[in-house]
């Protein structure tokens, strides 16, 4: 796991090269801060403080500005995520179909709250305000896979399955 902050010499050189390529792709333009951060996150999974400082330096903007922006938008992650990234949809359609119960059940089963990652780095739990697949509500996404029409029993089975897969 480690992330970029603790990467070794050779590895970190590669990372910086890749980072440079991403920023260059946007012509070092300040206004491209958000797409640059998006691309970096796609590459590394999350945004470490080191990476963010590098971005600030390369774009010649204060690191405060970068920190301000990444904490404003929900999709930026400042911590590494677990192997299974669970997103519970809390859109209105899912809400009236008892998504809060589903969320509660997941929290009970894996023992973490929204925005947290389990100690074994297996699960990260987040909520989203609508994935726009309302016919399947309540919906839980695991990484990029949809699990529709969820209820407590199905959550139970899903989590058991994920645990089993990991053994």
């Amino acid at each position: 796991m480690g992330g970029v902050g603790s990467a070794g010499g050779g590895e970190s050189f590669l990372i910086m090269e890749r980072l440079e390529a991403i920023i260059k792709n946007y012509g070092f333009e300040k206004r491209a801060l958000i797409p640059i951060l998006q691309d970096i996150q796609t590459e590394y999974g999350w945004l470490s403080e080191d990476l963010l400082k590098q971005v600030a330096q390369r774009l010649k903007i204060p690191s405060m500005d970068v920190f301000s922006v990444v904490t404003f938008y929900k999709s930026f992650r400042l911590k590494p995520i677990g192997k299974y990234f669970m997103t519970v949809c809390l859109g209105t359609a899912c809400h009236v179909r008892e998504a809060p119960e589903v969320l509660g059940e997941i929290q009970r089963k894996i023992g973490i709250k929204n925005g947290e990652t389990t100690a074994d780095n297996l699960f990260t739990l987040e909520t989203v305000n609508c994935v726009g697949a309302c016919a399947l509500g309540p919906i839980v996404m695991v990484n990029n896979e949809y699990h529709g029409l969820m209820n407590k029993n199905k959550i139970d089975q899903l989590i058991k399955r994920l645990y089993a897969k990991d053994l």
Binding site: L33, I34, F72
Partner: peptide, 26 residues
């Protein structure tokens, strides 16, 4: 194409503009 980064408020015109300019979507 500009991809939003997860902020409902960016549906508001002036916030959307702030976001395209590369800042907080306020």
């Amino acid at each position: 194409i500009i991809r939003g980064a997860g902020a409902f408020i960016c549906g508001e015109e002036t916030s959307l503009i702030a976001s395209i300019e590369g800042g907080r979507g306020e």
